[in-house]
C-alpha cells in the first residue's frame, strides 16, 4: 500500500505519482490522508489501481478517471468524476453540484445525496445515487444511466438526449422534453446490474420509474422555440 499524506506532501506530488504508475506495476493500492477539501485529488489517473481517500475532497476529485477505482471516505465537492472515462468512483458521503458531469464511461456511486446538476451532459457514464439529487440534474444528458434511489429536484432531464434516468422516489418536476417512460424487461435487467454493481441491496428494479427524452427538441422547430 502506497500512503500519501497531504499534510506532508503536496497535491502535485500525489497526482504526479499516480500518473507515473505504469501498466503492470505492483503499486496497485494507494491511500490518501488529510485531503481537507483539496481540489483535483486523484484527477487524471490512467491505470487500474485503487485509491482510497480518507476524508472529504474539494472540486474535481477523480476527474477524467480512466480504469482506477477511487473511494472517497467522506464527501466530495463540485464536479466529482467530471469527464470520467472508465473505472469507478465511490463517494461514501454526499456530493456537491455537477457530479459526473460530461462523464463518458465508468461507474460513479454516491452513497449519500448529490446536489444540483448531477450528471449534466453525461455521455455514457453510469451514476447511482443512494440518496436524493438536486435541481437541473441530467440536463442535456446524452447517454448512460442515472439511477436515483431517493427523490429528484426540479427540472430533471431538461433537454435530454438518449440517457436513461431511473428514479425510485418523487420527481419535483421534469425539464423540457423529458417524459416518464415504460420499464421494459431490458431496463429492469440493466437496472438490476447497476444496483448490484453499486452495492445496493434490498431494492428492486421494479420500484423505479424510467424517464427519458420525448425527442421533440432534437431538431429545431419554430413551434418549439419557447421550450428551449
Amino acid at each position: 500500500m502506497q500512503v500519501f499524506d497531504l499534510a506532508k506532501s503536496t497535491l502535485r506530488e500525489l497526482n504526479q505519482a499516480l500518473h507515473n504508475v505504469q501498466n503492470g506495476s505492483n503499486e496497485t493500492a494507494w491511500e490518501v490522508l488529510n485531503p481537507k477539501g483539496s481540489h483535483a485529488v486523484a484527477a487524471g489517473v490512467d491505470a487500474p489501481i485503487s485509491v482510497d481517500v480518507r476524508g472529504s475532497v474539494g472540486y474535481y476529485c477523480g476527474g477524467m478517471n480512466s480504469e482506477a477505482t477511487i473511494t472517497v471516505h467522506g464527501s466530495a465537492g463540485p464536479g466529482v468524476g467530471e469527464n470520467m472515462m472508465s473505472g469507478s468512483i465511490v463517494v461514501k458521503g454526499d456530493a456537491s453540484q455537477y457530479a459526473g458531469a460530461t462523464g463518458k464511461g465508468g461507474l460513479l456511486v454516491i452513497e449519500g445525496n448529490a446536489s444540483s446538476r448531477c450528471g449534466i451532459s453525461m455521455k455514457g457514464i453510469d451514476i447511482v445515487v443512494h440518496g436524493n439529487i438536486g435541481h437541473m440534474s441530467a440536463f442535456m444528458a446524452q447517454s448512460g444511466h442515472l439511477v436515483v434511489l431517493g427523490d429528484a429536484g426540479d427540472a430533471l432531464g431538461d433537454s435530454i438526449y438518449e440517457a436513461k434516468l431511473f428514479v425510485r422516489g418523487n420527481v419535483k418536476s421534469l425539464g423540457a422534453d423529458c417524459i416518464k417512460k415504460e420499464m421494459r424487461p431490458e431496463h429492469i435487467a440493466k437496472l438490476r446490474d447497476l444496483l448490484d454493481r453499486a452495492g445496493v441491496k434490498d431494492v428492486k428494479p421494479e420500484e423505479f420509474t424510467r424517464y427519458g427524452s420525448a425527442r421533440t427538441l432534437y431538431n429545431f422547430n419554430i413551434d418549439n422555440a419557447d421550450a428551449y
Binding site: K36, G37, S38, S56, Y59, G77
Partner: peptide
C-alpha cells in the same frame, strides 16, 4: 464557499 475553509 468550500469545505476547505471549514476543514480546520
Amino acid at each position: 464557499s468550500e469545505y476547505r475553509a471549514l476543514a480546520k
